[in-house]
Design a binder for these strands. Structure first.
Lengths: 246, 246
DNA sequence: AAGTATTATTCGATAATATCGAATAAAGAA
DNA sequence: TTCTTTATTCGATATTATCGAATAATACTT
């Protein structure tokens, strides 16, 4: 299982992940310390990636992610068919509910936000574009999990862990399976302060022509409670918008 | 010079480039043929990259670029400070000139379009977002080249080549240096059917606070000739917009 | 300016491992 | 079913990535 992995490539990817986390150029030394690989090894990997503009070295010697990644990244998002068509719906929903709204894509493993619209309310905690979201602690994440079979869910949860972001975060698998059942019945997922204290939201699936669910529409905001009228009417509007997009 | 390159990493990057070119999922066999590496080698590399979601395998077995590249890519574009501030200026310039307008970023080696606005004219040939542009055959490319020293220019031109896209493309280095001198004097670059027959455009630098030039504003369209009044007034408007953004 | 500290880069011997062809398994078509 | 095509596994081999240590380059002090 682990022996067909090509180590030098694996190390390169790990370096990219470290660079992603830092979000700003870092020195070779830092990279070496954080990865655990010797400086000279890191240097060779970085040098190779630099030749392809996947890594960029700044004038002061530090390293950062390179422009080629932008090119590759836009190619990936370009393959998502709905991107343009969907933005007006986001704005409309944002306006009607006052909450922040966003669209996520699920590749079977990761939930990524790729379009968003801030609401009219004060504090806005919408995920940044391009950010991966927690599978077990967000409405979107749970929604996508609810489309998978039990063993797949277990596998993903084991892989990503079930960190307790707040006291409300679901950290028990049995509890999670009950929640996923409820989502399947209800047709949408709810997030009740599981990721950030007091932050509530919901997510509804956008179905492809063939019934597949790769995208979801959601909102988040600071509601009183998930049984409040404003929250429930926001859910209603979200469901309608999602149905229109499907 | 070439011996510190780590081959397996280098091959991985080449595979990503091939996947980028195809812009749709391809089979292992195709990848093997296009890269020239044996199937089993390609498989190992792809498998490793898959573990990091840099490559994705579809249900039918074919491979494509993975979602992690989107994450990495947005991180890169997020470091470009002006992105949001600049879009209104693009729209305004597009409206006033009727031409397509766009913003490019230069990392010292590649010119990449990262925001654009279509014009009112009929046929629109604006570069897609995320696309690399020819250094020697576009206004943007030549503009950035004009900020570099002679040896650097030679190096870049040798690296990327000077393909003759049209009869007007500059394919001679001496001619190019004369052109770059003219751009330095003029303060902006002009493209006169050098990339696509009949397509004309111009590009002006957007200067950072410290005087550095990383971004450029440009337009392209189907003008009569680059000495026509409409073209010259478009240039004027572009220069003003670029100055405002600087 | 010279000296010191820090970090980037090069080098070379060695063991580790990526590579490749060939064999097998799996999926699709007829 | 059988035949084709394509993906995946395997194992012997030579190639090459690796690592520590040496050197170069840069930044910081005095």
């Amino acid at each position: 299982m682990e022996n067909k992995i090509i180590l030098s490539v694996d190390k390169s990817m790990k370096l990219l992940e470290i660079l992603l986390k830092f979000r700003h150029p870092v020195s070779l030394k830092t990279l070496s310390e954080h990865s655990g690989y010797p400086k000279s090894t890191v240097y060779g990997l970085l040098f190779t990636m630099m030749q392809h503009d996947v890594v960029h070295q700044y004038a002061d010697g530090r390293y950062g992610l390179g422009i080629r990644l932008y090119e590759l990244g836009t190619s990936v998002s370009g393959s998502w068919d709905i991107s343009a068509a969907v933005h007006p719906a986001l704005e409309k929903l944002s306006e009607m509910t006052g909450a922040g709204t966003f669209i996520t894509y699920f590749d079977g493993k990761n939930v990524i936000s790729f379009d968003r619209c801030v609401g009219t309310g004060g504090l806005q905690v919408i995920p940044e574009v391009g950010m991966r979201m927690a599978l077990h602690a967000t409405a979107q994440g749970k929604l996508f999990l609810s489309t998978l079979n039990r063993s797949r869910v277990l596998h993903l949860l084991r892989e990503s862990g079930m960190a307790a972001f707040t006291p409300h975060t679901i950290t028990d698998t049995d509890q999670m399976f009950a929640e996923l059942d409820a989502i399947r019945v209800r047709g949408y997922a709810v997030e009740n302060g599981e990721y950030r204290r007091g932050l509530m939201g919901a997510a509804a699936p956008i179905r492809e022509i063939d019934g597949k669910i790769e995208y979801a529409l959601g909102f988040v905001g600071l509601f009183r409670r998930i049984t409040s009228d404003e929250f429930l009417s926001a859910v209603e509007m979200m469901l309608n918008a999602a149905k229109d997009l499907s």
